[in-house]
Simulated scan of single mutants.
Amino acid sequence: MSEIKQLDVTIMGREFRVACPPAEEAALLEAVNYLDAKMRELRDSGNVMGIDKIAIMAALNITHEFMNTRVAGGLDMADFKRRIGRMQQTIDESLKEQQQLF
């Protein structure tokens, strides 16, 4: 059975607790830093207001970057689209929970 570690991360000054296998901790922290930088970049541009909109625009920008990256050996776009859909659903559910806190 694989061990799952609980990590506290900060994105745009907000704290989140996420579950992660220890072997993937470094990659998760790198992803957190990348997302935080993208969200701050959008906020600082002044073109996007509100944390929800900033998060959605950052997700769209990162997804666009990802989908335009070519991977040697081919890329199963259908599988990645399904995964992105599941991630988006998880994000939406998390945002609903966060809104209830305020």
Score class of each variant (00 low, 15 high):
Met1Gly: 13
Met1Gln: 11
Ser2Leu: 11
Ile4Tyr: 15
Lys5Asn: 06
Gln6Pro: 12
Leu7Arg: 13
Val9Tyr: 03
Thr10Glu: 14
Gly13Glu: 03
Gly13Cys: 04
Arg14Ile: 03
Arg17Ala: 07
Arg17Thr: 15
Ala19His: 09
Cys20Thr: 05
Pro22Trp: 06
Glu24Met: 07
Glu25Ile: 00
Ala27Ile: 08
Ala27Trp: 02
Ala27Arg: 11
Ala27Asn: 11
Leu28Pro: 12
Leu29Cys: 04
Glu30Tyr: 09
Ala31Phe: 01
Ala31Val: 15
Ala31Asn: 05
Val32Met: 04
Tyr34Asn: 10
Tyr34Cys: 04
Asp36Cys: 02
Met39Phe: 00
Met39Ala: 09
Leu42Asn: 02
Leu42Ile: 05
Arg43Thr: 04
Arg43Trp: 06
Asp44Gly: 09
Ser45Phe: 05
Ser45Gln: 07
Ser45Gly: 06
Gly46Thr: 06
Gly46Ala: 12
Asn47Ile: 00
Asn47Gln: 13
Val48Thr: 13
Met49Leu: 00
Gly50Met: 00
Ile51Met: 13
Asp52Ala: 10
Lys53Cys: 01
Lys53Gln: 08
Ile54Gly: 01
Ile54Arg: 00
Ala55Cys: 12
Ala58Tyr: 13
Leu60Asp: 02
Leu60Tyr: 11
Leu60Gly: 05
Leu60Thr: 08
Leu60Trp: 03
Ile62Phe: 14
Ile62Gly: 07
Thr63Met: 06
His64Pro: 07
Asn68Met: 09
Arg70Asp: 14
Val71Glu: 13
Ala72Tyr: 06
Ala72Gln: 10
Gly73Gln: 06
Gly74Asn: 12
Met77Asp: 10
Met77Tyr: 15
Met77Leu: 07
Ala78Gly: 08
Lys81Met: 07
Arg82Phe: 14
Arg83Leu: 02
Ile84Ser: 02
Gly85Thr: 10
Met87Asn: 15
Met87Pro: 01
Thr90Asn: 14
Asp92Ala: 07
Lys96Arg: 10
Gln99Trp: 05
Gln100Pro: 02
Leu101Ala: 04
Phe102Tyr: 09
